[in-house]
């Protein structure tokens, strides 16, 4: 192995990692937000809106992320949607993650005992208030482990953004391997960076989880 090339490629790899983290964070936030909206729509909107949303979910879940990105980036201009690589990548990640996040939230909402919602209705609480004060806090807590889990999966999907030339870590690693033929070193660096990222996310996730479920666990 030949680690000296890292001196030359280190900065661009770090920059790539920065772009990866940025894409991951924003893609996760936007994807979760859209997923939450979808889950709420599925719960409260009239039947036919639910069908439209369901169709969207089927399409996204039924096609590979790679294909979605291609369509978005290369097909987008045909309908006037001309995006730079990073915005296109972010939009792609958001759309791709949203149905999975929606499903997680939906399960989280279902885990809120119906009686606790009824108790709020019984004192005359309005539905939006119930969502804000009871359904969301309790539903999000039970969604948390699955949210963290899927966010970790999303970190790895970010490498696909390289094919639409988003200069993230995979892209830089690819460039380094192509220029130096140091495939092994390049991919070990890639693995190391991802391991650090994933480890950090799961640690933070666990910490948040213990913190906010402190009061929710029955004393036995």
């Amino acid at each position: 192995m030949e680690w000296s090339i890292l001196e030359q490629y280190g900065p661009s790899l770090l920059r790539g990692f920065g772009v990866t983290v940025l894409c991951w964070i924003l893609g996760t936030i936007f994807g979760m937000a859209l997923g939450l909206v979808i889950a709420l729509v599925q719960r409260y909107a009239p039947r036919f809106v639910g069908w439209i949303v369901q169709a969207y979910i089927e399409v996204i879940r039924g096609t590979p992320f790679l294909v979605q990105l291609f369509v978005l980036y290369y097909g987008g201009p045909l309908i006037g949607l001309r995006l730079d690589a990073i915005p296109a990548g972010l939009l792609g990640l958001t759309l791709y993650g949203s149905p999975y996040f929606a499903e997680i939230f939906r399960a989280g909402f279902r885990a809120v005992p119906h009686g606790q919602i009824e108790a709020a209705r019984a004192i005359g609480m309005a539905e939006p208030t119930i969502v804000r004060r009871i359904l969301l806090p309790l539903g999000l807590v039970s969604s948390l482990p699955a949210l963290v889990n899927f966010s970790i999966i999303l970190t790895k999907e970010t490498v696909i953004l390289s094919i639409i030339t988003v200069p993230e870590l995979m892209y830089q690693v690819g460039r380094m391997s192509a220029e130096t033929y140091r495939y092994l070193e390049a991919n070990l660096v890639l693995a190391l960076f991802f391991w650090v990222l994933v480890e950090a996310i799961s640690r933070v996730g666990r910490r948040v989880e213990t913190r906010i479920t402190k009061h929710l666990i029955e004393r036995t």
Binding site: P113, G115, Q116, A119, A122, I123, G124, I134, V141
Partner: peptide
């Protein structure tokens, strides 16, 4: 608002 209800399962809000 003017009708109170108490359930078998208490249904307190755990958070």
């Amino acid at each position: 608002r003017s009708i109170g209800m108490v359930f078998q399962q208490f249904n307190l809000w755990p958070h």
